Amino acid sequence: MTHASRRTQLEIPEGVLLGHALVAGLAAGLGIRAFFIKGPVSVLQGLREAKVSADVDVVVDPVRLEDLMQGLHERGWRERPVDPDSRTFPKHSVTVHHPEWPCCIDVHFRFPGMERPDCFESLWANTETLELAGQQLTVPSRELGVLFLALHALRSPALPACRHELDYLADLTRREILAEELLEVARATNSLAAVRPFLEVLLPSSITVVWPEPSPEWRNRVAAQDPGSARLLAILQAPWSEKPRLLWGALFPTREVFLSGNIYADMSLFGQLRQHCARWWRFVRALPRIARSLRKLSASGD
C-alpha cells in the first residue's frame, strides 16, 4: 500500500460516522423507517461515556428489512458468514461488511430481551432526532436508549465493562427520574423480565410491578457466557430427535462457524485443524465454569 493510499484509508471512527450517514440516507431514500442505537448516538445523548465504536447499529422496520439489505448490497456491502445453527443462536440482526470500509453495519430486526415480536411500532413511537455526520438521524428517546443499553449490558452482567455501564445508566436514571418512563417502554416491548435486575431497584417503592418470568432464550443468553456453553445448552434442551444433528454440528462445525468470528480466518486444511484444536481447548478450560452456570440455570428454572 502506498503512502497516498494510506492517507485516504478510512479510520474506524470516520467509518462509523459516515456509515450512520450512509444508512440514514439510504433508508430515507427508500422510505424505510430506521433508527440508530448504541454507539456514537448514545454518547451524544449522554447515555454512555465517550468511547470508540467499531460498528453501526441500526434498527429497521422488520417488514422492510429485505429492501434495506438490497440497497446495501447494491452499494457493495455483503453479509458476513453466520453460524447456521439458529436454534443455538437465535438471530436478531444481519451484519454486513464492505472491503473498503473499516467497520461493519449491524441491521437489527429485533433486539434480545424485547420479547414482543411486533414491538417496532412501540419503538418507533419513542424516537427523536439529532444531528450526526451532517445528517438528521432518528434515535431512541432517552428512556428507550437506556433500555437498549441496559439490555445489552445485562447479557453479560459479570463483565467489568458491563457492570460499569449498568452503574452509569442507573446513576443517570436516578438523576433524570426516568425509571417510570423506562418501565412503560419495557412493558410496551415485553422486556420487563430481562430488564428486571436493572430496573427493579430504581423504581419508587409506591409502584408495584408484576414481573414476568424471563423467556428460555433470554435465560440461555445470560447463562451462556463461556466457550461452547450455548451449544451445550441447546443440546441438553433439544428434543431427542434433534440432539444428534446439534451434537454433530458442535463436534464438526461448518466453515461459516469459523468465518463468523473472523472473515479472514485461514480455511486451509491446516488452518481449520488449528482452529478446531483451539476451539476444543477453550471449551475444556471453561468446563468448570460451564458446569456452575448450568447448575444455576437449572436452579432458577425450578
Rank of each mutant, 00 (worst) to 15 (best):
R142A: 12
S86I: 15
F109K: 00
R163E: 09
Q136H: 11
P212R: 07
S293K: 06
A224C: 12
L26P: 04
V82F: 13
H20L: 09
T8E: 14
K296R: 15
W77G: 02
L273E: 09
P90V: 06
P112M: 08
L65T: 03
E74P: 03
F283Q: 15
S191I: 02
P204S: 05
I105Q: 06
L17W: 07
S241D: 01
F89D: 06
F258H: 13
P140A: 07
V201N: 15
L72E: 02
L68F: 06
P13C: 07
L178S: 05
L203Q: 04
E242M: 13
P227M: 12
R285H: 05
L294R: 00
A265N: 03
A193E: 01
R116E: 09
W124R: 12
L297H: 01
D118G: 03
D57W: 03
L147V: 12
M1R: 14
P102Q: 10
G134Q: 06
G71T: 04
L287S: 03
L147F: 05
D226V: 11
V146T: 04
L202M: 08
V41W: 09
L169P: 03
A186I: 02
G15Q: 11
L130I: 07
I37S: 02
G71N: 06
R163G: 08
L294H: 00
A223K: 05
L297W: 12
C104M: 14
D61N: 10
V58K: 02
A153W: 01
T138V: 11
E115K: 07
V60D: 01
D167Y: 10
R75M: 06
P157D: 05
V43E: 08
E180N: 06
S42M: 05
A4G: 06
R6V: 06
R78H: 13
H276S: 00
N220A: 15
A193Y: 01
L287W: 06
G113P: 11
A250M: 11
C119Q: 03
E217P: 01
S141D: 14
G39D: 15
V16S: 05
E217C: 10
V16W: 07
E66T: 08
S42F: 09
R279E: 13
R196K: 15
N220V: 09
P204I: 04
D57V: 00
E11F: 07
L44D: 04
A28S: 13
P204Y: 07
P227A: 14
F283M: 15
R116M: 07
N190T: 14
G228Y: 08
K38G: 01
L251R: 02
G46W: 09
G261D: 02
P227D: 15
K296T: 14
A133W: 02
Q70I: 04
L199R: 09
E66F: 03
I105S: 09
A286K: 00
F109L: 13
P212F: 10
L269W: 05
F148A: 04
